[in-house]
Write a protein that binds this DNA or RNA. Structure first.
Lengths: 146, 146
DNA sequence: GCAAATGATCGACGACATCGACCGCGCAAT
DNA sequence: ATTGCGCGGTCGATGTCGTCGATCATTTGC
């Protein structure tokens, strides 16, 4: 279903999604038309959902990164959910099992800014904020098992 | 330093990093050479760190996603750190302040697989596992304040 | 074994990125 | 105020790249 060549394509594009078809083709030792065809199929099958960039948040004015666990107060779940969605500083948020209901990652300019955003959430939820000191592993593809 | 046109470029590429220069240029109402020049500068300045893909982990054989908080046992921090780095299932891991030392995101095939990976970590650390039930917000750019 | 389907290559054509030459605006210094 | 300079832009030519149709090889099923 997904073979070594597809895997190679995924890995190469994960490393640089702006690679030209020709470069891609050369690296996987295939002609460009067939590389193009495989790429199209990976997209059609939904395996590749999209192509995006990795931008440096610091250079965009966000000096601080935090992971906030959020447990809405009784009855406030829908309202908290709306608040999270409306908070632009939250760049990622998962609904999880366990004591906490949500885990959000947020980018802020400063401590004051962090405080401001978290305070808003804390009006309707119990929160737990952990400031990111460093990235041990930065976003990578999981091992491809199929 | 970074103007509306740069912002537009970042947003467009965040939405689809494989956009051709020509398309990009058309959307920001600029010629391709100047678009190319701006793109080059965004890269040189380190604002764009790279171009990557968004792949569907489920279609790559990872049915389950979890967020694991990890607190190494006394003296085991370096060893835990090495273990995390060597664990391919961990696709992202941050070093954070607070009770927990690390927060990791994990992709696994099954509950058994999850258990296996977490058990390995739990030999040297206190762990807290939250299974991801859904993504409320999936990775997006933070607001650009500069 | 043969037919058909799948997945590859080849070559030609059209689209695209890049480069050099040139232009115009804003700013600083005289 | 004017002149000179530099930044950031357009334009047009050239070479490279992607795409499409035709064709060929290899594997699968009968």
């Amino acid at each position: 279903m997904i073979d070594d060549i597809d895997r190679a394509i995924l890995e190469l594009l994960a490393g640089n999604s702006r690679l030209s078809l020709k470069d891609l083709a050369a690296r996987i030792q295939l002609s460009s038309p067939s590389t193009s065809e495989r790429l199209k199929r990976l997209e059609e099958r939904g395996i590749i959902r999209g192509y995006t960039i990795d931008a440096d948040p610091r250079l965009l004015g966000h000096q601080l990164q935090a992971i906030v666990r959020i447990r809405p107060l009784p009855g406030r779940l829908p309202s908290v959910q709306k608040l999270i969605e409306a908070t632009a500083e939250i760049v990622e948020c998962d609904k999880v099992t366990g004591e906490d209901c949500f885990v959000a990652r947020l980018f802020v300019r400063s401590m004051e800014h962090l405080d401001e955003v978290v305070d808003r959430i804390a009006e309707e939820a119990t929160t737990n904020t952990a400031i990111v000191k460093g990235q041990l592993i930065k976003r990578r593809l999981p091992p491809i098992t199929y």
